[in-house]
Design a protein around this nucleic acid. Structure first.
Lengths: 116, 116
DNA sequence: TATTAATATAATTATATACTTATATAATAG
DNA sequence: CTATTATATAAGTATATAATTATATTAATA
């Protein structure tokens, strides 16, 4: 499928047009995060987050990095202009992320990362 | 609703993320068109086109101009950057439009416009 | 090797939405 | 005023999709 075909654009816009995925992208704008962080941040089921991340990954909007059983996701920084502009327009989730990191009770994927 | 809230972005991206509406926007990038033109160009029912145009209009993506029973639609040229970039990325429908105008059998809204 | 932990996939359900046909509205022509 | 034309709205239907719970997979660890 051509990059800028109507079909491809429609598919990509549908993927980024979901509230949950926009929020995920808002967080990933701040930093690379793992599935368990996003589960807590979004307050939804792990399979739900996993399915959203898969769609974003297959679409090439985010990249995955594996470390043991952990899966870390980050933004693809080489998106086409119209997608880059969408990411840019997403309101910052920095405050929410900071609050989460300060208050976190769990140690999901944290220890491994810090000791790395 | 704030312009760049997640909710608002999601609503707008869903509106532009539809194949039919992207195609309509691709045509409107070329020139102002009336409902009957778009019905022929898209090859779908008049109510279908009308419903799509209403969504685009209510969202502020296109503007309407009334002339008698005809309704002409054109792009809003003052869209936020991320929406403007999306419009820019839509493949040109110029060839298809030119072909339609050359071959048109109907005279839907044409005579009035030319005599105006 | 068995258990635990992190993530992914499958199956299901509920909601949203993009069409269609039928009908209503509104403006012009006769 | 009546008929016609262009467009809008209503109602109904089929498909897509976002969520959940249940289960599978995979890697680390006891």
């Amino acid at each position: 499928m051509e990059i800028h075909s109507i079909e491809n654009m429609s598919a990509l816009l549908k993927i980024v047009g979901d509230k949950t995925r926009l929020t995920i992208l808002g967080y990933l704008k701040e930093k690379e995060l793992c599935v368990c962080d996003l589960v807590d941040l979004l307050g939804m089921s792990q399979p739900g987050i996993s399915q959203h991340l898969k769609k974003l990954r297959v679409a090439g909007i985010i990249h995955e990095r594996r470390e043991g059983t952990w899966a870390y996701f980050r933004l693809n920084t080489e998106l086409e202009p119209y997608l880059a502009q969408i990411i840019k327009a997403i309101p910052s989730q920095a405050a929410s992320l900071k609050n989460y990191e300060a208050a976190r009770q769990n140690n999901c994927c944290v220890i491994k990362v810090e000791n790395k």
